[in-house]
């Protein structure tokens, strides 16, 4: 459905940061945010994804939406690696506040502090929030 933008191959490379601060199923933001990441992967840009606040709930293990009838897009996070999207960061403070440990997550991530997220953000050209 999405066109592959060949003209950007080997062209300008910018650093994109996707910031996810929302829980996954109550609203569509998380799901549509993931769609941006997947399409964006075709553009060969440098990509980082940050999960903080309720965004950390997006990557919890064992999500099963069968009984509510919505799409279980949480499985797609595991496929990001195939799209060469490998830089996933989770804010330590948000995890701690929610009693979540790395074992509870369904994808490999780097757990970093708020300050490190702040510094990381400064290294990016485009920051998209959902």
């Amino acid at each position: 459905m999405e066109e592959i933008p060949e003209e950007y191959e080997g062209g300008i490379v910018k650093k994109f940061m996707y910031v996810n601060r929302r829980a996954p199923h109550g609203t569509i933001y998380a799901q549509e945010s993931l769609e941006v990441v997947l399409v964006g992967a075709a553009f060969d840009q440098e990509v980082s994804i940050v999960f903080m606040d309720d965004g950390v709930y997006q990557i919890l293990k064992d999500q099963d939406t069968s009984a509510i009838g919505t799409k279980n897009f949480s499985k797609t996070f595991r496929a990001l690696e195939m799209y060469d999207v490998e830089k996933l960061y989770v804010e330590r403070e948000s995890m701690q506040a929610r009693g979540i440990s790395e074992d509870d997550l369904n994808v490999p991530v780097e757990v970093i502090t708020s300050e490190e997220i702040g510094r990381l953000m400064e290294q990016h050209d485009v920051i998209l929030s959902f």
Binding site: E2, P5, K14, F16, V39, A42, V126, L128
Partner: peptide
């Protein structure tokens, strides 16, 4: 048009501002 237009906007623009 496709979501690629959003990524392209990020690549081509000096600044991107999100409202939501």
């Amino acid at each position: 048009s496709g979501l690629g237009q959003l990524i392209e906007a990020g690549i081509q623009s000096d600044r991107v501002v999100v409202f939501g």
